[in-house]
Design a protein around this nucleic acid. Structure first.
Lengths: 126, 126
DNA sequence: TAACTGTATTAATCAAATTAATACACTAAA
DNA sequence: TTTAGTGTATTAATTTGATTAATACAGTTA
């Protein structure tokens, strides 16, 4: 479910946060389903429970999960999260376009890539 | 010429590397022109000369500059660098499009952003 | 020679991430 | 009620990477 990359410069807890975000937003983890416990996931990944705790705290802070003491951590309703992710992607698109312009890339090349991805992947419906 | 952002999580030397790359690829620094000396730039930025040294070593490793002992560091011919930068941007465009698709964003939204940037910025010629 | 340049090395310092070791509170089931 | 799970909190130690500090050495130029 989670694979750590120790060459990645980002801290482990951030990798874990990101990975769960992906899983939740792709629908791979259903709303209200339970996440692995702090201790068990730490065992699985051979890292310290505190690091998992930190990742979970961050996920909760961002509204991705909610925790119930004594029971566990659970996937929250994250419709609103998707919106903020969308914003982030659009911002990233802006940065990419700026850099492409800076490098004198023709905008058609960007178009083509987008078309390629969208035709390959098809569209989901909500 | 160079402004450091201490809130940035990336190391200082990397910020310096990136900034010089920008300057060189935008044409703001001409080929064979001299970079500030290790010690003088360190003074300017109020940081340790070793940090500049590290940044310059990295720039040289990547082929952006060449150094002459006793004389200084100089901007290299970096036509090929621009090409690899272009590749990197296209790859980034691909990732962005994938994520946009994943988030069910209409591709027209990406188009619009690109158009906006390109119309605002105009095109340079080589 | 003097004052610049780059390069290399070693040790010290600092900050952030991670680990380690606990303790405490809640839940669920035997 | 006891046991074994769960989350949460806290403090200290450790580790790692970045940065600083202090030097030394070598080449260039005036």
């Amino acid at each position: 479910m989670i694979i750590l990359d120790y060459r990645d410069r980002r801290p482990i807890y951030e990798q874990i946060v990101e990975r769960f975000q992906e899983l939740m937003m792709s629908g791979a983890m259903e709303e209200n389903s339970q996440l692995p416990s702090v201790r068990s996931l730490a065992m699985d990944l051979s890292i310290n429970p505190n690091t998992i705790q930190r990742a979970y705290a961050e996920l909760e802070r961002q509204g991705y999960i909610y925790s119930v003491k004594g029971k566990g951590n659970f996937v929250a309703d994250n419709g609103h999260i998707k919106d903020s992710k969308r914003e982030a992607v659009l911002k990233r698109q802006e940065e990419t376009a700026k850099e492409a312009l800076f490098l004198q890339l023709e905008k058609e090349k960007l178009y083509n890539i987008i078309d390629e991805i969208y035709s390959r992947g098809g569209m989901r419906d909500d």
